[in-house]
Design a protein around this nucleic acid. Structure first.
Length: 260
DNA sequence: AAATCTGCCAACCGCAGAGGA
DNA sequence: TTCCTCTGCGGTTGGCAGATT
């Protein structure tokens, strides 16, 4: 247990900042438990770390948030929730604390208001739409292999893989050796990109939907292997030729995809 | 001018996970 | 496997500054 008796708390003075800066410049970041002693500071290690990471580090940009940054925060929050460090990782020069504070001070109310508005609109739609009207996805193109296999009665139903190991594009596989049960729809994409995403579980459908809406292609290490989901890939996806009974019997799975 | 309210930001606290002994 | 230490994260709080009454 850390001894915090007699340790200084509260706002940092100019002298303390200078001591901490000099210490980090001399020894580098890390080994925070040694920093108070090395710097000659009567502060706990946590306080030193926080002061450096949130205020003193030269990588920090302290200007006001730009429009595109705000937009990115909203989209990433929609995707990741309160994972402030992950969100901040996509915003050069911004700290998790900055992002969190900005969210709580400026964006929370705004987003809540927008969601309320959307809810209202949804309710309005529900009352004006016909009951039980179901819009089914339509086949776009046909896989010749799949049609051939279907003709030979080898494959009875298409299988949606959550992600392809190499290109991460969801594909229907007609090779029985690779068949996965339909329950894999919505599997956690993060499992293949865990190192860069932390432990954030991101259901595939959510990733696809949200990432397409990001302004720039998310081809970075942060989003990891989910980054290959681009709309053009989606358009190239092959949907098998199936009759209505297939959609009816599998509607639950597709519902679960879009409702995430 | 003084008191009170509100918003914002820096800092603290507690917890969980990673890694080593 | 268990325990301990260190680190990092997210939620919360304290206090300052500006706005309002």
């Amino acid at each position: 247990m850390e001894n915090t008796i007699g340790v200084r708390k509260g706002a940092w003075t100019y002298e303390e900042d200078k001591l901490l800066k000099d210490c980090i410049n001399k020894y580098g970041e890390g080994k925070w438990h040694l920093v108070p002693q090395r710097a000659g500071l009567n502060r706990c290690r946590k306080s030193c770390r926080l002061r450096w990471l949130n205020y003193l580090s030269p990588t920090i940009y302290r200007g006001s948030f730009a429009e595109d940054e705000i937009d990115m925060i909203i989209r990433l929050h929609n995707l990741l929730g309160n994972r402030w460090s992950l969100i901040a990782g996509r915003l050069p020069g911004r700290t998790a604390n900055d992002v969190k504070n900005y969210w709580n001070a400026h964006l929370l109310k705004k987003v809540v208001a927008i969601k309320e508005e959307e809810k209202k609109n949804e309710k309005h739609k529900e009352t004006t739409m016909k009951a039980h009207e179901v819009i089914k996805p339509q086949p776009r193109t046909f896989s010749t292999n799949w049609l051939k296999e279907k003709h030979n009665n080898i494959v009875s139903q298409p299988i949606l893989l959550a992600s392809n190991k190499d290109d991460t594009i969801p594909t229907y596989h007609d090779d029985q050796s690779e068949i996965m049960v339909p329950n894999h729809i919505g599997i956690d994409c993060a499992s293949s990109s865990k190192s860069s995403l932390g432990n954030a579980p991101i259901p595939c459908a959510m990733s696809m939907d949200s990432l397409w809406n990001l302004e720039e292609p998310v081809g970075s290490e942060i989003i990891g292997s989910c980054s290959s989901f681009h709309e053009e890939n989606y358009n190239d996806m092959e949907f098998p030729n199936v009759d209505d009974s297939f959609w009816d019997s599998n509607l639950y799975d597709f519902d679960s995809l879009w409702d995430l």
